[in-house]
Amino acid sequence: MYAFTYQKPTTIAAAVAALGADADAKPVSGGQTLIPTLKQRLAAPTALVDLAKIPELAGITVAGDTLTIGAMTRHATVADSADVKRLIPALAALAEGIGDPQVRNRGTIGGSIANNDPAADYPAGCLGLGATIVTNRRELAADAFFTGMFSTALDDGELVTAVKFTKPKRAAYVKFPNPASRYAIVGVFVAETAGGIRVAVTGAGAGVFRATALEAALASKGFAAASLDGVAVSADGLNSDIHASAEYRAHLITVMAKRAVAAAG
């Protein structure tokens, strides 16, 4: 790691001010991606602004069918939350499958989506559920938030403060993990929401995306695994590496989608 300074503000405003004061400062929430990156000297922030002590960022609240999860909420907390399990069990299950138990005890939803790793799980959950990303400045639809590999619509000085989810009619997430890293080679989140059927895919491309061909098939033929029989996803633009070719990933998207639809019941 390169040397850096460290601050632990207690308000969002103070955090934003600290980040604004130094162009090379970075926020750290759980640190489960950032710290390994720093250890490999792949990033060289001059300052780390720790968001862990900001009470406004913590906690899960429920209002009717809407679940609001504070940005600093740990994956293990989401996985264990009775509210999440009751309203959106697929989201609790997704959180339960992120990384390993130690990562889940430290990693946060805000950190995960702000980082937008192309193989992370939460972006698929947010996009699949049509979540609303709340920042210190505005609210953004997930469709507008995730903009590509490790990139989001966040501006400088803008922090994710919470994510709002609305209870879907049904949903499920099924992941095909990389056998080594256990990140998603392909993860598919399917949901039948008030706004329609959504199929979000992580791991397969440069960033999380919606599989429109699958959505159309489910919409037209009904929300059933059989509706996806023979529906192929194009391999164009998908990732290809030593673990999985683009063609294999394309195949897995349909398979995982079918399994997710079946699991959603």
Binding site: G31, I35, L48, Q102, V103, N105, R106
Partner: peptide, 24 residues
């Protein structure tokens, strides 16, 4: 952060001490 040889408990919950800053 893969191997887990460094796991300790932080406030009772297991965590990888190689993936946490002391200041955190």
């Amino acid at each position: 952060s893969q191997c887990g040889a460094c796991v300790v408990h932080v406030d009772g919950a297991s965590a990888k001490s190689c993936t946490l800053l002391a200041v955190q």
